[in-house]
Design a protein around this nucleic acid. Structure first.
Length: 507
RNA sequence: GGUCUCUUCGUCUAGUCUGGUCAGGACGUCAGGUUUUCAUCCUGGUAACAGGGGUUCAAAUCCCCUAGAGACUACCA
């Protein structure tokens, strides 16, 4: 088998969408699984759609995801340059070659003229296509005399080069995921290969570069399936061996119909981009998975399972495990609806897997930047250890543990109604005295002393514990009371009980 | 409209090639258990072969038709 060389070839027209990340991921997994090379090629042949910062964003995003490239504009490689605008001088000779061989021709129709034809056709409920039939009546080197064509070109009349689609030929193709596909060329049109601005279109540049870069497998989104016949025909016209193709299913909206778009994320409240993106023109900000608190490992794990499965019941995979398990045989053919809940669940699983030290370290940072709290690291790690299993994101830790960092200022109404009885104030004061008298203030000992006191006086576990919880937390939630007491310390606990009794007695 | 692709629980999917286990798992949801509380966690339930014909002793699986969905249909990628 020849060396596996795959490429991810985005256009820097905006931020990289999660569908693009998944395409890059599958390319990467396939390459690494087969000991091959992963190449990043920037397809910026459309200068009108260039967006500043987009290329940099793409590189940074993939890096965050852990998708590494063996060859790119940044890391270099022997098949560069890896940006199509830097390869511009290269393409014209291939366009010329196709014309010389009779596989392409010059077309002089202006964009305005073509727009007019389309509008006219549409008015008659037809579709205008530039094909074997219509090319006979349009302005091109097949209808205009050779000398005239040469003269026009020499005079600088703008032209495009179009592929001369063969008539009534059945193109037989093979897709790794979809199997055999055949299309009759009569349904295809004469695509522009070379634009009047001197740049190739995607189709030409893509085929030339894939050939020159010795790409063995073209792995891309299903939206490219309709142009596969053109690409196969181009390889044939050049006399080149075509790579193998694999067209991945699309990522669909969580609800409704159609493919996932940026708008869905805004509407349903989840990111569609890996990293935060600020549109350079409008200034509009789109949140990213990273900024929303997702671990890149969880994000990648989730994406990998959207359109592929390992054939086993394993769901949690490290990148290395994904590489080992990946194969096209287990890729799905149909589009996959994006699911926010499942995505959150993946992050939850990664929180579970991480140690309290790891998560605590992140929480320590979060506390400082978001709350301006400079806490003791050891303390934060202990707090994190008590509550981290109940959250999906580090930022949710606050809601589960705020009472470890600030005393309650309000008391949850529903809990008060339910747990604060007539004799509660008196009971809490007694409990406070007991707590104040405990020498060994470890959770274990606190639990022992409290339990003994409650049982020997027949006080009722719920009444005491829930009352204390209300005093210490201000709500009816949180870890075990004795754990809270230990971390808070005797002094703070006594203070909170005194305050709570006063506050709740007012009502 | 045309071309191509796709179609199993609400969602992601296993099973289809090589017909034959109550169609399996996960997320969600519901119930129960654990717990001093809220969560987590554990256990259990829920729920699907798009429809119609065939072939066969037997069809999610093979064949045909219908329906639905998606993508593409630019001098954009």
């Amino acid at each position: 088998m020849k060396e596996v060389r795959v490429r991810f070839a985005p256009s820097p027209t905006g931020p990289l969408h999660i569908g693009g990340v998944r395409t890059a991921l599958y390319n990467y997994l396939f390459a690494k699984k087969n000991g091959g090379k992963m190449i990043l090629r920037i397809e910026d042949t459309d200068q009108t759609r260039f967006v500043p910062g987009a290329e940099d964003y793409i590189v940074k995003s993939l890096d965050w995801c852990g998708i590494k490239f063996d060859e790119s504009d940044i890391v270099g490689g022997e098949y560069g340059p890896y940006r199509q605008s830097d390869r511009k001088p290269l393409y014209k000779q291939y366009s010329d070659e196709l014309i010389a061989k009779g596989f392409a021709y010059y077309a002089f129709d202006t964009a305005e003229e073509l727009d007019k034809y389309r509008a006219e056709a549409e008015a008659q409920k037809k579709t205008f296509i530039y094909n074997a039939e219509s090319r006979k009546t349009l302005r091109n080197s097949l209808t205009i005399a050779a000398e005239e064509v040469e003269k026009m070109i020499n005079e600088g009349v703008p032209y495009t080069v179009r592929f001369k689609m063969p008539e009534n030929y059945e193109v037989r193709m093979h897709d790794i995921i979809r199997g055999d596909i055949k299309v009759n060329t009569n349904t295809l049109d004469d695509k522009v290969l070379f634009k009047s601005d001197g740049m190739p279109t995607y189709h030409l540049a893509n085929i030339v570069d894939d050939h020159l870069m010795k790409i063995s497998h073209v792995i891309r989104g299903e939206e490219w399936l309709p142009s596969m016949p053109l690409h196969v025909l181009l390889y044939q016209a050049f006399g080149w061996e075509a790579p193998e193709f694999a067209h991945l299913p699309l990522l669909l909206k969580p609800d409704g119909n159609g493919k996932l778009s940026k708008r869905d994320g805004d509407r349903l409240g989840f990111p569609v981009f890996p990293l935060r993106w600020v549109d350079p023109k409008s200034g509009e900000v789109s949140s990213g998975y990273r900024e929303s608190g997702y671990y890149s490992e969880a994000f990648i794990n989730m994406l990998a399972l959207l359109g592929w499965n390992p054939g086993t019941e394993q769901e949690i995979f490290s990148m290395e495990e994904l590489i080992q398990a990946f194969s096209f045989e287990h890729c799905t053919k149909s589009g996959a609806r994006f699911n926010v809940d499942k995505t959150k669940w993946f992050n939850h699983e990664y929180i579970l897997k991480k140690s309290k030290e790891e998560v605590g370290e992140e929480y320590l940072q979060w506390l400082e930047t978001e709350k301006g709290i400079k806490a003791d690291k050891e303390y934060v790690v202990k707090v994190t250890g008590l509550v981290k299993d109940r959250i999906n994101f580090v930022k949710e830790l606050w809601d589960q543990s705020f009472f470890f960092f600030e005393e309650p200022t309000t008391y949850d109404e529903v809990t008060v109604k339910k747990r604060w009885k007539e004799n509660s104030a008196e009971l809490m004061l007694k409990a406070k005295e007991l707590i104040n008298s405990i020498e060994d203030f470890s959770a274990e000992n606190i639990e022992k002393v409290l339990n003994e006191w409650i049982t020997s006086n027949e006080l009722g576990m719920g009444l005491v514990m829930n009352g204390l919880r209300l005093m210490l937390v201000g709500a009816g939630k949180g870890p075990h009371i004795h754990e809270i007491l230990e971390l808070l310390g005797k002094e703070e606990a006594v203070k909170r009980i005194d305050k709570g009794v006063v506050e709740l007695s007012k009502v």
